[in-house]
C-alpha cells in the first residue's frame, strides 16, 4: 500500500463518518460543521486524484456557501446576544475538532505530494494527454464541446432569478420602504422649501431666562 492509497482511505473514512454525523447529530450547528468536514474531505480526495480545479471549487463554493448557511442557522435559532455567547462556547469543541481534522487532512495531502514517486495525477489520462493543467483542459472543453449546455445553464440561472423575484417581490400598503427611482428623480425644490418671512423682533421666552440674566449682569 503506497502513500496515495493510505491517504485516500483516510480522506474517504473521514468523509463517510462526517457524512453520517450530518444526518445523525441532533444539533443543527454540529450538523453543518460536519457537512463542512465532509465537503473538505471530498475536496481532498479530488486533489489527490489530480482534479485540482474541482477540489478548489468545492472548497470555495460549497464550504464558503455552507458557512453562510451555518450563519443563517445560528441567526434563526436565537438572536439573544447572551445566548449567542453561550452558544459560541458550546460549539467551540466541535468546531475545533472539525478545524483540526481539516488541518490534518491538509498536512497529509502536502506530505503525500512530497513522497509520491510517480507524477501526481497518476491516472488522469486526459490531463496528461493534453499536456496541460486540469483547469486549461476543463475550460477548453467547456467552451467547445459543452458550449451549448453551458449557455443553457446560464439561461436556467436567469429564469431562476426571474422566478424568485416574481414570487417574492410584492408591494404591500402600509410598509415603509425606499423607492430608489423616486429618490434619484427628486429635485432640489422638493428637498428644501424656501419660505419668505418678515423680520421678527426677538421674543423673550420663559426658557431663555439665563440669557436675559447675562444681559443684566455687566
Amino acid at each position: 500500500m503506497d502513500w496515495v492509497n493510505i491517504a485516500f482511505w483516510v480522506f474517504a473514512i473521514a468523509a463517510t463518518v462526517s457524512a453520517g454525523a450530518v444526518i445523525s447529530v441532533r444539533n443543527p450547528v454540529h450538523a453543518v460543521l460536519c457537512l463542512v468536514l465532509t465537503f473538505f474531505s471530498i475536496a481532498c480526495v479530488w486533489l489527490l486524484v489530480g482534479a485540482e480545479f474541482l477540489g478548489v471549487a468545492l472548497v470555495l463554493v460549497y464550504v464558503g456557501a455552507v458557512m453562510v448557511l451555518f450563519l443563517f442557522v445560528v441567526m434563526m435559532l436565537d438572536i439573544d446576544p447572551t445566548k449567542m455567547r453561550e452558544g459560541w462556547v458550546r460549539y467551540l469543541p466541535v468546531g475545533l475538532i472539525v478545524a483540526v481534522a481539516m488541518l490534518v487532512q491538509m498536512l497529509i495531502l502536502i506530505g503525500v505530494k512530497g513522497r509520491a514517486v510517480t507524477p501526481f495525477p497518476a491516472d488522469n489520462a486526459a490531463a496528461l494527454a493534453a499536456d496541460s493543467s486540469n483547469v486549461t483542459w476543463l475550460a477548453r472543453t467547456l467552451f467547445t464541446e459543452y458550449l451549448l449546455p453551458f449557455e443553457f445553464a446560464a439561461v436556467i440561472l436567469t429564469v431562476a432569478v426571474v422566478a424568485a423575484v416574481m414570487l417574492t417581490l410584492r408591494r404591500r400598503t402600509g410598509v415603509k420602504s425606499q423607492n430608489p427611482g423616486e429618490q434619484t428623480m427628486v429635485k432640489a425644490g422638493q428637498r428644501l422649501r424656501m419660505v419668505k418671512m418678515g423680520a421678527e423682533a426677538p421674543v423673550v421666552h420663559s426658557n431663555s431666562k439665563p440669557a436675559a440674566g447675562e444681559e443684566t449682569q455687566p
Binding site: 443553457f152 439561461v155 436556467i156 429564469v159 431562476a160 426571474v162 422566478a163 416574481m166 414570487l167
Partner: peptide, 11 residues
C-alpha cells in the same frame, strides 16, 4: 431542457 421547463412550471 427538463430543468428549464420545470423551473418555469413551478414558478
Amino acid at each position: 431542457g427538463l430543468e428549464l421547463l420545470a423551473l418555469c412550471s413551478y414558478a
